[in-house]
């Protein structure tokens, strides 16, 4: 079952450096509002990086830059050795065409705070839509794999259910299965449990822990300190569009060095 989910970690450029994600001086502004003011980040293949920070600090924006849902104004982002959104030729950056950007996104899964499942499709249709539409898989084998993925996230009995008939926790697990169906090298989670009732948070975190154990590279924006401490390989604390502090989760949580980190942790712990 595990080999269904985690693709072989073979990307040559990543293997050389061991890095799955590298961000260098990423800047992003919405009009006059500067949201990201030079973010540096490195995530090694197979690692779980937890991104913490107060609301409005730019965590979601940074995550969306990684799969080019937002265009960055300066800096560079590589995923598995590929420069995201641009091609470098003769020292100049040229924007990739829409098709090329779409191709890059296929190896990066994303899970949203508000699930964003397709409400007119069943759970299984949600999962197989992209692989079938993009010619990754024939319909029959996609259905088989999709059913196995839903089984894996504990929803083997909900293949034919529409999102409107599922609880929030179940919807988020379908969303995770949908992202995994494209066999991504990297998974981005944007506060995946923030919209859930407290009693449903556990079931989603369990699926994510499972995924981390299987060696998936993950960047997780979360306020779940317990998850960061238990599953995270690194913790990055952001505030006001900059990385304030980063390190091993246990260390940062136990001995925050910056006042802003201390203040934030005091609030969420």
């Amino acid at each position: 079952m595990t080999e269904l989910i985690v693709p072989a970690q073979t990307g040559a450029p990543a293997a050389e450096s061991g890095l799955m994600v590298r961000a260098e001086q990423v800047h992003k502004a919405f009009g006059p509002l500067e949201v990201l003011k030079g973010i540096d980040l490195e995530v090694r293949a197979g690692e779980v990086c937890c991104l913490l920070g107060p609301s409005g600090s730019g965590k979601s924006t940074f995550l969306r830059c990684i799969n080019h849902l937002e265009k960055i104004n300066a800096g560079r982002i590589w995923v598995d050795g590929d420069l995201i959104g641009y091609r470098e030729r003769g020292g100049k950056l040229h924007e990739l065409r829409e098709k090329e950007v779409a191709a890059q996104r296929r190896s990066i899964g994303m899970v949203f705070q508000r699930f964003n499942l397709f409400p007119h499709m069943t759970a299984l249709q949600n999962v197989i839509e992209a692989p079938v539409l993009l010619g990754r898989d024939r319909k029959a084998s996609a259905r088989e794999r999709g059913a196995a993925l839903l089984e894996r996230v504990g929803l083997g009995d909900k293949l034919g259910a529409y999102p409107g008939q599922l609880s929030g926790g179940q919807q988020q697990r379908v969303a995770i299965a949908r992202a995994l169906a494209m066999q991504p090298k990297l998974m981005l989670f944007d506060e995946p449990t923030s919209a859930l009732d407290p009693e449903l948070v556990g079931e989603v975190l369990d699926v994510m822990k499972d995924l981390a154990r299987d060696g998936m590279t993950m960047i997780v924006v979360t306020h779940e300190i317990g998850f960061a401490r238990e599953v995270g390989d690194s913790l990055v604390f952001m505030d006001g569009g900059v990385v304030v502090e980063s390190g091993a989760p246990r260390e940062v949580i136990a001995n925050p060095r910056h006042d802003r980190t201390k203040a934030f942790l005091a609030k969420v712990l």
């Binding site: 890059q104 949203f112 964003n116 007119h120 839509e129 539409l133 993009l134």
Partner: peptide, 27 residues
């Protein structure tokens, strides 16, 4: 149609046309 639908489709690697045909217009 909620903007999150387009984002989810694009994050999966669907093109604009595919997003419109399969996700946005049916809704």
């Amino acid at each position: 149609v909620d903007g999150g639908q387009t984002e989810a489709a694009q994050a999966l690697g669907l093109s604009r046309g595919q997003t419109l045909r399969r996700v946005v217009l049916p809704q």
